[in-house]
Amino acid sequence: MRDKEGAGPVVVHASARLVEGYVRGGGALAADEVWAVEAHLEGCAECRGRLADVVAGSAPEVAALSDAVWAGLVPELEAVAPVRRRRLRWSAWATPAMAPWLAMVLAVTVLAWVLDVVGPGSGEVSWVLLLAPVLPVCGVAASWSRGLDPAYELTASTPRAGLQLVLRRTASVLAVVVPALLVGGWATGVMAVQWLLPCLAFTSMTLALGGVIGVTRAAVALVVAWAGVVAVPTLAAHRTAFALQADGLPVWGLVLALCAGVVFARRGAYTVLGAHR
């Protein structure tokens, strides 16, 4: 029987004679026909369905056999405890090694928020705004650190390493950090776009630089740079630095776009051990 499925390849199905002969067995079909039918049945659900119908109708002993096997199997299968899939679902996004770091990031956000609301205050400067760019960097570093992720070498050798895992892990960090900052920022009256762009830009910068010198090293370098260039001078002068003002936003946007481009272009860099330094 020949079917034409649109412009696709011609699909040849086993004829009723072949299927019936296959079920009867015992020389009903030539050896090469049996082989061809068997190979076809392996890959064709439709013909397997027809085979099942023929078996039920014309070979009751086979149907009885498979019923008996099922009758024996079902109680055993029901007795097997279902596998807990929860852990696996989570680890597709974040390694267990990241959990304590994400908790720490949350704690720091709460602390920053508390300082903003009830603390003595440092003039016009918001702690949430000051910490927002570097908080996700810690989480991203934790997901790529050799010391924190024991399975780093196994992970790096798999096909999913590279861009896909980078994006999944970064997304899981941001999924924790951004809502926390959103709540913190809303409570202290800081505009979301003011910290969200620097936050994303810093994250992408960590990854872009991490592809060259290792993600953990990149994170440390960027946190130090942020502290030295923006955080400390801001706290000392009691006024918000240019980098954190609304005028600085296009620059952050540009940095984000550039670094995202670098991460994409150099996606293979996350598949070697060098990224785990």
Binding site: S91, E153, S157
Partner: peptide, 16 residues
């Protein structure tokens, strides 16, 4: 990589 199997010398795993 889908067709490679690899066991590193010091292989780490998640204890839990």
């Amino acid at each position: 990589r889908r067709r490679i199997g690899y066991l590193p010398q010091e292989f780490g795993y998640y204890k839990r």
